[in-house]
Design a protein around this nucleic acid. Structure first.
Ligand SMILES: [Zn+2]
Ligand SMILES: [Zn+2]
Ligand SMILES: [Zn+2]
Ligand SMILES: [Zn+2]
Lengths: 130, 130
DNA sequence: TAACAAATGTTATATTATAACACTTTGTTA
DNA sequence: TAACAAAGTGTTATAATATAACATTTGTTA
């Protein structure tokens, strides 16, 4: 039984904002949005982001330097993440596809090496933008 | 018949450095290495990098903000890239695996959406670091 | 050679991320 | 509960990554 993580004040503030957003948020845009709540420095944001990523509550979209809330549960502690990213608008969707996840988690390269973790980013046009 | 691209002076300089390196290079580290050749500003590096990526000569390792030469030819113009990244040392290898590439290129999500492009990054320990 | 596209050189600035240090809160253990 | 350790906070400063804007040059094509 994994104990439900209790979040610290700043972690909760940052997570709330990311969860409410419907597109990936950048660290500094989060910062600007929480200045009324007494958070004034990038460090405070980045520290919260780091912990939230560790806990698997959020993911970083590497190609955008932006952060989204985890909508899945396959990606246990961010070991196996996949996203679809619209090249036109800001839309990002987390892909949770058991087959894909299994295929990639068990993938080994030509030397037989297996990997602990992967991150996959698909690019295309979302429904709206087609 | 695709005509062999001729590279501009700066593009060639930047590509040479990236090809000689055996680990991913960062933009500013490339910059420092070419100052003797008369390139003085980040813009000149980033412009060359952009073109080289477009041509498929190099790839960006998104999780590292660093650049590697393309060692494959499956990844036609960077539409389908996959890498293994050592979490300990700087090692990055381009994975060229036809099955993997085909599987991902033809992947469609639950709504049936297909994608134009993907980038996959695996993380683990390389042979040396195990 | 005139016209246009691509590349270059340069200065300035924007954006993303971390270092370092002092302090406080929380959780654990004697 | 006192003592300690671990995690979190607040703050200032700075490093690292990336783009904007503009003037000029080079290369290509009609
Ligand atoms: Zn997730
Ligand atoms: Zn879209
Ligand atoms: Zn390649
Ligand atoms: Zn290694």
């Amino acid at each position: 039984m994994t104990q439900a993580q209790t979040l610290s004040k700043n972690q909760q503030i940052v997570l709330d904002i990311i969860e409410k957003a419907n597109s990936p948020l950048k660290a500094y845009s989060i910062l600007f949005n929480v200045q009324k709540k007494g958070i004034n420095a990038p460090q405070q944001i980045y520290r919260a982001l780091d912990k939230l990523i560790e806990m698997g509550k959020i993911h970083k979209i590497e190609s955008k330097n932006a952060f989204v809330a985890c909508r899945s549960s396959d990606c246990e502690i961010s070991k196996a993440t996949a996203f679809s990213i619209c090249e036109n608008c800001e839309m990002v969707d987390e892909i949770s596809d058991t087959k894909l996840s299994k295929y990639l988690s068990s993938f080994s390269d030509k030397k037989g090496t297996k990997f602990k973790r992967f991150n996959l980013e698909f690019f295309g046009l979302c429904k709206k933008c087609k």
